[in-house]
Amino acid sequence: MQLEIEIKFSLNGRMVQTKVPPTMTTLVMLRENFDLTGGKLACGEGECGACTVKIDDRTINSCLMFAVDCDGREVQTIEGLGGVAGLEIMQQAFVDHGAIQCGYCMPGMIMQARYVVDQNTDKSHQLSRDDIARGLEGNVCRCSGYTKVVDAVAAVILDEASA
């Protein structure tokens, strides 16, 4: 009998409860226990960022983090970014700027892009294209060549600065 641990946490704004084996990763739990398949298992080693989700106020590779450590925390996945309200501004910018081709890496890329912009609380310093690129250094995309990804993030920064 596989040992399972009961955990309770906030998932995309709703409290949830589930049982997980102590070795299960957060990614597997999200995909299998909650059908949240936006985050992908693309390398399983933290080298590609396709599984990026936000835990409390930090993004992490959910393929590396143990699911039990979600206990008591706030977990946000791509599905919870815009949610039923539709696309959040970062998601919409990725669509509008043509950043999405096959799209497999995009849930992770968009979560990280949102984090990079949110992390910069110093409004006197506007993130440059190089800053954005560095913020996305842990996210691999094989289709876009990153230019339109950075375009999209830069546009969101401009939009939010003028808002």
């Binding site: 933290g46 992490i60 590779n61 983090m65 984090y115 250094e137 842990g138």
Partner: peptide
């Protein structure tokens, strides 16, 4: 060190 996501964990 690694990437932002790894640094966070």
């Amino acid at each position: 060190f690694a990437s932002p996501q790894i640094r966070n964990a």
